[in-house]
């Protein structure tokens, strides 16, 4: 992420926070509501989240990797791969507390737009939402992967901005193929 974060409007943006923990939801909800997002709804299980997403009224999904054990990636995959799901293209941010490289890779390969390390900071969350809003990525729909093109890079917060959120550099063979598809489709 280079350059200053562009201002964004979150009024009437509907957010689903899928997290087993009530405190984590309350913190995320408070920050998002202070930005103007409304409603901010809670799902404590993957099943609850899936049902809410199927209704087609969720604009943004923030899901914890450890919901229902390690069910966050399964939830993201199910949203992306279900062609009848009206919300399959929505932006998805995956949150991680104790973070391992394996969890980051799994999150990315499940189809999350971005991975955020916890704790959430208002600045870190704002920067990511601004980035997602202003840098939409081609949506890849392939046999082995469905989700935002992984070739596109998120290589660091703009100068002087908060860096509490994890930054991932994505540059690999799968991304190479997806980038070619994206170029062909433009």
């Amino acid at each position: 992420m280079k350059g200053p974060a562009k201002d964004i409007n979150l009024k009437n943006i509907s957010v689903l926070v899928a997290d087993s923990g009530e405190p984590a939801f309350r913190i995320t909800q408070s920050i998002l509501k202070s930005f103007g997002a409304d409603p901010v709804v809670h799902a404590q299980t993957v099943e609850q989240a899936s049902k809410l997403i199927q209704r087609g009224t969720v604009d943004l999904l923030i899901v914890n990797y450890n919901i229902d054990g390690k069910g966050g990636a399964d939830l993201v995959r199910s949203v992306r791969e279900n062609r009848r799901n009206p919300a399959r293209h929505i932006p998805i941010l995956m949150t991680l507390g104790h973070t391992t490289i394996g969890a980051v890779t799994i999150s990315r390969d499940a189809g999350a737009n971005m991975v955020l390390t916890l704790p959430l900071s208002p600045g870190g969350l704002y920067d990511r939402l601004s980035w997602v809003a202003n840098h939409p990525r081609p949506f890849v729909d392939q046999e082995k992967y469905v989700g935002p093109c992984r070739r596109f890079k998120d290589v660091g917060a703009p100068g002087g901005m908060e860096r509490r959120s994890l930054e991932i550099e994505i540059d690999d063979d799968e991304g190479e193929d997806e980038a070619e598809s994206a170029t062909a489709a433009e």
Binding site: K6, I8, N9, L10, K11, N12, I13, D59, L60, H89, I90, P91, L129, S130, V132, A133, N134, P136, R137, P138, F139, V140, D141, Q142, E143, V146, C149, E178, S181, A182, A184, A185, E186
Partner: peptide, 18 residues
């Protein structure tokens, strides 16, 4: 499933830029 990748507008990206 196709190999084509295209940018799909979402309600989030549309509202957030207004």
């Amino acid at each position: 499933k196709t190999n084509e990748a295209r940018i799909v507008p979402t309600r989030f990206t549309q509202i957030a830029r207004q």
